[in-house]
Amino acid sequence: MISTVRLQSEPFDAAAESARLTQGRADAGALVTFTGLCRGDEAGVPINALTLEHYPGMAEAEIERHVAEAKARWPLLGVTVIHRYGRITPGEPIVFVGTVSSHRDAAFAAAEFLMDYLKARAPFWKQVERRDGSTWVEAKSADDRAAARWHKRTAAE
């Protein structure tokens, strides 16, 4: 099982990352990828850019912990997580999650699990830059609920 976790300020090529995940594999039956993009508006108001602050050291460790948990829960053949920090303009990618498995169920579930956890637990903070100043994005309780349902699912198992 090959896993890649990368934090970087520069943009990434989602197509190249997807291709790398399955290159030379005959056992892969399913590849699920998610790319989060910088929207040109926040709550309907146009923005110039997003700036992502992160906690170096902890961000990598927290993502690695969740990749390890995903590996323990689903039969994965490969995982890639890339998260950017710094200033990001509308249309640019922010985050990439790719999961490879023999079958689609595991690939879908693991990708969704990783995204839900990145949203709620990975130490990143978005600041919105508008013409008239900057504000911090408020956490959505829906993101906490999305992450919490994976706990409930474990408890029910």
Binding site: L52, A61, F124, W125
Partner: peptide, 28 residues
């Protein structure tokens, strides 16, 4: 976060080297 792990307010500081305080996270 205590030594780069999320903690609750009741967690003991113990022999930790580093603590961080921050708002709810908004990554992804």
């Amino acid at each position: 976060a205590l030594d780069k792990m999320h903690v609750q307010p009741e967690a003991a500081l113990g022999s930790a080297k580093e603590i961080a305080f921050f708002p709810p996270m908004t990554g992804g």
